[in-house]
Design a protein around this nucleic acid. Sequence first.
DNA 1: TCCAGAAAAGTGACCGGTCACAATCCTGCC
DNA 2: GGCAGGATTGTGACCGGTCACTTTTCTGGA
Lengths: 359, 359
Amino acid sequence: MSVTGHTSADTPADQAAKGGKSVSIRDVAAAAGVSYQTVSRVINGNASVKEATRERVQEAIRALGFRPNAAARALANRDTRSLTVVTSNTTLYGYAATLQGVEEAARAAGFTVGISVLESEADEHVRATVNRAADSSSGLVVIAYDSAGVRALDCVPDGHPVSAAVEAPAGPLSNSLPRAWIDDAEAAAEATRYLLELGHPTVHYVALPSTTHASRRTAGWRAALEAAGAPVPEPVGAGWDAVAGYDAGRRLAQDPGVTAVLCGNDDLALGVLRAMYEAGRPVPGQVSVVGFDNAPQSAFYTPALTTVEMDFTDLGRACFALLHDVLAGTSTAAALPPVPRPRLVVRESADVHHPAPTP
Amino acid sequence: MSVTGHTSADTPADQAAKGGKSVSIRDVAAAAGVSYQTVSRVINGNASVKEATRERVQEAIRALGFRPNAAARALANRDTRSLTVVTSNTTLYGYAATLQGVEEAARAAGFTVGISVLESEADEHVRATVNRAADSSSGLVVIAYDSAGVRALDCVPDGHPVSAAVEAPAGPLSNSLPRAWIDDAEAAAEATRYLLELGHPTVHYVALPSTTHASRRTAGWRAALEAAGAPVPEPVGAGWDAVAGYDAGRRLAQDPGVTAVLCGNDDLALGVLRAMYEAGRPVPGQVSVVGFDNAPQSAFYTPALTTVEMDFTDLGRACFALLHDVLAGTSTAAALPPVPRPRLVVRESADVHHPAPTP
DNA sequence: TCCAGAAAAGTGACCGGTCACAATCCTGCC
DNA sequence: GGCAGGATTGTGACCGGTCACTTTTCTGGA
């Protein structure tokens, strides 16, 4: 890794640019021969200003390189038009996509977006992070797919504007903050039924660390199994990434009764795929695997992953809309945005059940 | 996707919390029976305040639930202690990891970090995005791996504090802004030599859309080939994701002379892997593939991907350090941070060359 | 030509902190 | 007891915008 910096020759210029007094509306006003209030009117484009005056002011603005000071504006307005997203690991697909959605919607609405990542779920750390985030923006969007996020939600100062992306509607949330989630129970059930219809006696589940003990996904899987009268195996607890999936997969691979596996996300599924491969249990020949999320890579795995498509980006947009409502004071439970249901996308990793060869 | 909001019963409380005047240091001062300046001293912990007084003030702060107003502070200080990261698609591993690094370092230094994503490289859009980012924070970190980013770098208002993560030191950057990059030329060369030593007559290259026409990666690959006296095939232009890799891979698969492929990143490599698989050209049996970046998933592909490990997080940290120096006015080219060189991690996707069976 | 009323432009105060400097309170020592 | 000098604390102005309200300038109709 390499680095270049300014040459020392640049420094004076920098100093000038930094230390040199920045131009304010008063400076512009003087240059244009009007009052500062008129300049304010021009840059906000709202009040009535004579065309000739407006042009004169705009000319001055251009000449002086004036840029309105956001802090001053925020102070006077008592509003920053900014939000910060509180999240853990943005390197995971679901998180990154949600963030992307929030950012997109926020930017469109003229909001500035900050990001604040939770590095652990240690109480003090979470509290400090949330407090700083709350102070530096007018609203919070918490991505609470994991327990660090849920804890963060609990730390939000009372009454502070916030919305959250959560795993499931019911949960350990002490308060009834506005929140959005993707109802994937039905999709999980659909995936499970799909596997069952392929002839598998039952479907094993590699679960994400749940924040709720009542994950919609898990519930859908269980319900489908029960409805079909199939045995309900204990879900295999795992983490978030391929490493965790691999570990779970190795355990599952040892049980010859395992022929179908539903995974909490695509990374987990990738790990399972690999573990099965190493254990000499071909997918989908001997074991079928279905993922969750439809990450961009999963169509290219070998076998291509059958998975459930989730629109995290849209979820992010919804979270912004929710926060925006709170900020505007128009927050109501009544206004439900469109509900894009997740759907199963069938590829190669799941196939009809082939009874294990009896040796 | 589902959404809940506040019940209407909550609304009054909200209004109160929002409309109700927020407590200022003057309020705290009155409650504690001291002057506002003393309160300021207490919350900044710097000046000399008698212990008894400090406690009285802190008690008042707690009682009133005082939280310092960031905007006011920024206005008075002429400094926000905030930066915003300008980047495109944060869903890609390299970008997300870099962002994570910047955020981590920034948070540690008490900086607030914003994010602003470039949705296209349309000039007007880029300019608007950069300007807004520049106005809302005291410094910019531009991730300029792609042309949208490079363009953004060119739009940064003159003299505005900025640092950048770039693809290569030399480039179309018109100005000499402080920037950091991972010197992967040697790593690319190492990977190429590795493939050559495996007996492959040459190594094909699936390139990232380069911002510079002089990507270090490409240069390293070419140099290694030339040094070995191997033919230098035309790099296959591609995009950033697995889809692009897949397209490139299909073209490559048709040429029986292709036995070794180096890819600009792991997603590209995944696409190539898949294309080769579909074309009936087993990897690594018939074709060897090496990726770049060592994304967390690549160890779990089948075959596990041999790739070059890049420490993007550290690069992000370096970018922050650079910006921090600029902000502090201590920016010099002299201060080079430690240089963690990328290294080749050998897994399964590359193997000794097996001459094509002569049919 | 004059005046009402709308349009345009200006004034003062304030948002919630910080700085520079002044004022007051101690303490030890002559 | 009085005083120098450091430790504490208070005062006024200001950062760069915005709001509410006042003043000045236009406009058209009587």
